[in-house]
């Protein structure tokens, strides 16, 4: 059985053309593995490149070197080199990505946002509808808000919509970038439950949780990102 997610010798830098072409190294020599049922939490100070690693795994950031392999059923896809269409197919079936920020088309009601994500993830319309309601209810989003577009919501409410959207479909690999940053303890506990359910069902998680309570509740392993600092690799 291959791992769900494998980073192999991945390096990433930014070249800022607008600032004279200076190169900002982000990470280097990244190698790590996420197995089914595992929740690997990235640790380290901000700016160490934790979010960048998630974004690379999602295909959102380019890589300078290395490979990021994601298991798609029997096949394995290298996100770094894959055709955009393959990456999109992977996102539809395999990778769920939940960030702190909700980015949706304005004016679409919250319930529809979540339901649409479910359908994009392969659920039937009825199943998506039912699960969307269930998730929003579990995340304690007041029902009166379901029919409203999330742009008008508080930060915490938006984040819960975002979590519901990210977790509604049965994708085996979850990339969680501080999904609970502005949630209260009660809702953090709900998210922890949801994540544990996914793990139990065989999903793998690569996540960033600054809140230690949340991290302790879900992490099976912590990887310190400072060891991927580009200087360390150069040295």
């Amino acid at each position: 059985m291959t791992a769900l997610l494998t980073f192999q010798d991945v390096a990433k830098s930014f070249t800022l053309h607008l600032r004279g072409g200076i190169v900002l190294p982000v990470v280097g020599g990244v190698s790590l593995v996420v197995e089914p049922g595992e929740c690997v939490v990235l640790g380290g100070p901000s700016g160490a490149g934790k979010s960048s690693l998630l974004k690379m795994a999602y295909g959102n950031y380019r890589c300078d070197a290395g490979a990021i392999r994601v298991r798609d059923g029997e096949a394995v896809v290298d996100v770094v080199r894959a055709d955009p269409r393959v990456v999109l197919a992977l996102r539809a079936r395999v990778i769920a990505y939940v960030s702190q920020f909700l980015r949706v088309i304005p004016r679409v009601p919250a319930l529809d946002v979540v339901e649409a994500a479910g359908r994009e993830g392969g659920l039937s319309e009825e199943a998506a509808r039912a699960r969307a309601k269930d998730l929003l209810a579990r995340l304690n989003l007041p029902e009166r808000l379901w029919g409203l577009p999330p742009a008008t919501f508080s930060g915490g409410e938006q984040q819960r919509v975002n979590i519901a959207r990210g977790l509604i479909a049965d994708r085996p690999l979850l990339l969680l970038d501080e999904p609970t940053a502005s949630l209260d303890a009660q809702n953090r506990a709900v998210v922890a439950d949801l994540v544990r359910e996914k793990l139990k069902a065989g999903a793998g998680v690569l996540g960033i949780f600054h809140d230690s309570e949340m991290r302790d509740a879900v992490a099976t392993r912590v990887v310190d990102v400072t060891r991927f600092a580009p200087q360390a690799r150069a040295a």
Partner: peptide, 21 residues
């Protein structure tokens, strides 16, 4: 050219960086 979010979030070409910025 490429994935929309990749090009917009991690633009490679100087002009794209300017456009995004």
């Amino acid at each position: 050219t490429g994935l929309t979010d990749r090009v917009l979030d991690d633009p490679e070409h100087a002009y794209t960086q300017l456009l995004v910025a």
